[in-house]
Simulated assay, not measured.
Amino acid sequence: MALGDSYAAGFGLGDPTGRPVGACAQSAEDYPHRVATALDLDLTDVSCSSATTANVVDTRQSGAAPQVDALGPSTRIVTVSIGGNDADVFGTAASCIALGRTGPVFDAKATTRSCRETLDAGGDDRLTRAIDSTTATGLRRAFTAIRAQAPNARVFVVGYPAVFPDAAHTPVSGCFRPVIDGTSLSEGLPRNGFPFTDVDVAYLSGVQAHLDAVLKRAAAAASFTYVDTLPGSQAHSACSRADPYIEGVSLVASAGFTKISLEPGALHPNARGAAYLADQTAAAITRSLASTPSAGAGAGNGAGAGVAFGLPVAVWLALGLGLALIAAAVVALLVARRRRGRPSPDARDTP
């Protein structure tokens, strides 16, 4: 069973599934589908782009039912990627497009040098505060609801891969790649850009690391397995020119440049990224299944439940009942034989 937002649904990838509704932009190339193929699992994928924890718990989304409605006592494995939209982390990041490596941020006035100027004004980091409050609370509710609906499932919380690189993986020359330049009107808009100032790359990298840390703590509190995809993807963020796991930013302009919008999939896992998430998740599931106590050891989870010394409880009960019936029959037979071997009361009284 797969739950989650656009990072689970494969927003921007091909082969749309139309599930749970078309507006979810779910792809058959997303990491849950890849995991199911790799491990030969039956999959129900209700992940949906733009989903928040509320859409997991109790709020319909574009006509789709709350995601936990798809769970049940028979659900055995759940993957979930959720939380980023509660604080609008990635939506905010997408609004930080800049005109140059040192700014300004692209807006109507183009006067703000970086997003951090407004998001972290006076030492009050608005995004971090939202993660610590809105996201953390939403994760607790979502994980509680998942456990209630799927009491027998192993749950794997898949963290977000690096969209913005940490300092160790940021080039000395910075990450900036423009999405609009002096030749755009004549030659078209540049593709796969990374239009963020040096200040915002460092800032947004820190915000994402904080988001993943909150996810990890929430997973641990719920006794779920956390799949940490951040360290292994730092060298493959959208900043990378060689082997990125995250799609860069490309703009789509209407005729005459009267309207400009982001191309679907910007700052989301590309095919390589979906494969990476699938590999990490499949490995975590495999390790978890391998660590399950054997049925002979009296495991109490999954297929081992209700098994002792290799025989199901029902068999032991049947054997016990049979033995009891045999014992009762033997006792009755012995009593009858003893009675036949004794003189009758009348015989003892005869002179």
Score class of each variant (00 low, 15 high):
T197E: 01
T197L: 00
T197S: 06
D198E: 13
V199A: 14
V199I: 10
V201E: 03
V201A: 00
A202L: 04
A202S: 11
Y203F: 14
L204Q: 09
L204F: 15
S205I: 06
G206Y: 06
G206H: 09
V207W: 04
V207E: 03
V207Y: 02
H210L: 00
H210S: 05
A213F: 01
A213R: 06
V214G: 06
L215S: 10
K216D: 15
R217V: 11
A218I: 01
A219D: 00
A220V: 13
A220N: 07
S223T: 11
D228P: 10
T229I: 07
T229N: 04
L230W: 10
P231N: 08
P231L: 04
G232D: 14
S233L: 01
A235L: 09
C239M: 11
C239F: 08
C239R: 09
S240F: 07
R241Q: 11
A242D: 14
I246C: 02
I246A: 10
I246P: 06
E247V: 11
G248T: 02
G248Y: 00
G248S: 03
V252A: 15
A253S: 05
S254N: 10
G256N: 04
F257Q: 05
T258F: 15
K259I: 06
K259N: 15
I260A: 02
E263C: 12
A266D: 03
A266V: 10
A266K: 00
L267Y: 02
L267C: 08
P269G: 06
A271W: 11
A271D: 15
A271H: 12
R272N: 13
A274P: 01
A275M: 03
A275E: 10
A275L: 02
Y276D: 06
D279N: 08
D279I: 14
D279G: 06
A284L: 02
I285S: 05
I285E: 11
R287G: 07
L289V: 10
A290W: 04
A290Q: 14
S291Q: 14
P293M: 12
S294W: 08
G296W: 13
A297H: 12
